[in-house]
Amino acid sequence: MHWLWVIIVGLVVGVIAKALTPGKEAMGFIITAILGIAGSFISTYIGEKLGWWGETGFVHFLGSIGGAVVLLVIYHALFRRNATA
């Protein structure tokens, strides 16, 4: 049940991050969920190790969104399609 919750929250985080990031990208459900989950894991690890927040809470959720936005920006930089091609 835990992993189902992680996927659902990761998808929500990915959708919010996608809405906050400028530009159009036709990413599907799976990439959005993966970026959301990865952003959540990265921000959880960094935030908890640095003592910025605990295991749960609203600040933790905002950190997950921030992590997903960073990953989305990196994704756009690496896989940007050439508009003239």
Rank of each mutant, 00 (worst) to 15 (best):
M1K: 15
A85R: 09
F61D: 12
T44A: 14
I37C: 00
K49L: 05
I34N: 12
L72M: 13
E25H: 11
T56F: 09
E48Y: 10
A83I: 13
A17N: 00
L20P: 01
T56I: 04
N82L: 11
G67D: 07
A77L: 06
L71K: 05
G39L: 08
F79T: 14
K18F: 03
L78T: 10
G36L: 04
A17Q: 01
K24M: 09
G28S: 13
I16W: 02
S64D: 14
G67E: 06
H2D: 01
M1R: 14
G28I: 12
I8P: 00
V13E: 08
V59R: 05
I37H: 00
A38T: 07
S40N: 07
F58D: 12
I65L: 03
W53K: 04
V69R: 02
I65P: 00
V69H: 00
V15F: 03
I74N: 04
A68G: 00
R81K: 11
V59T: 14
A33V: 04
F41L: 12
V6I: 11
G54N: 13
E48W: 09
F29H: 09
Y45T: 15
G14E: 13
W3H: 11
I34H: 12
G67W: 13
W52E: 04
I37N: 00
G28T: 03
V12A: 12
I31A: 15
G23M: 07
I16P: 00
I74Y: 06
A85M: 06
T56L: 08
L62K: 02
W52M: 03
F29V: 12
K24A: 06
Y75W: 09
V9S: 10
V13K: 05
V73C: 04
F58R: 08
T21D: 01
S43F: 04
I34W: 11
F61N: 10
L62P: 02
V59D: 15
A85Q: 04
K18H: 04
I65N: 01
F79A: 10
A26H: 09
I46W: 11
G10C: 05
V9H: 02
A77Q: 08
Y45P: 03
K24S: 08
L4K: 15
G28H: 05
A17K: 00
T21V: 00
A26K: 10
A77W: 07
E48P: 01
I8Q: 09
I7L: 11
A19E: 01
F79L: 12
L71I: 05
I30H: 12
V73G: 07
G63L: 08
L50Y: 08
A68T: 03
G28D: 15
V13F: 01
W3T: 13
V73S: 03
W5G: 13
V13W: 03
G47D: 06
A19N: 06
G63V: 13
F61S: 11
W53S: 09
S43I: 01
L4F: 07
T56W: 12
W3K: 15
V15I: 10
